[in-house]
């Protein structure tokens, strides 16, 4: 018996949008804190995510 190839699963447009949103959320959390927040809160989140950012190899000081 030859194994059958598993087929692709249809990706609706909203799922592609979700992909873009998730990718942006990662970027926001790790680097572009000021893309959404004001300067004070962005600085706070920047400091809070300091170790995670370094550990994930994202450029930092």
């Amino acid at each position: 018996m030859t194994p059958t190839q598993l087929s692709a699963i249809r990706v609706p447009a909203w799922a592609w949008a979700l992909l873009a949103l998730a990718a942006f959320a990662v970027l926001f959390a790790l680097q572009a804190n000021d893309a959404v927040l004001g300067a004070d809160k962005a600085m706070w989140l920047h400091e809070l995510t300091h170790d995670a950012r370094h550990a994930l190899g994202v450029p930092c000081h």
Binding site: A8, V11, A15, L19, A22, A23, V26, A52
Partner: peptide, 19 residues
């Protein structure tokens, strides 16, 4: 949190690339 978000992206790409 990043793992979960990456997991979402992974699932969408997996669906499209599965074949």
């Amino acid at each position: 949190v990043v793992g979960a978000l990456v997991g979402l992206v992974f699932a969408v790409v997996y669906a499209a690339a599965r074949g």
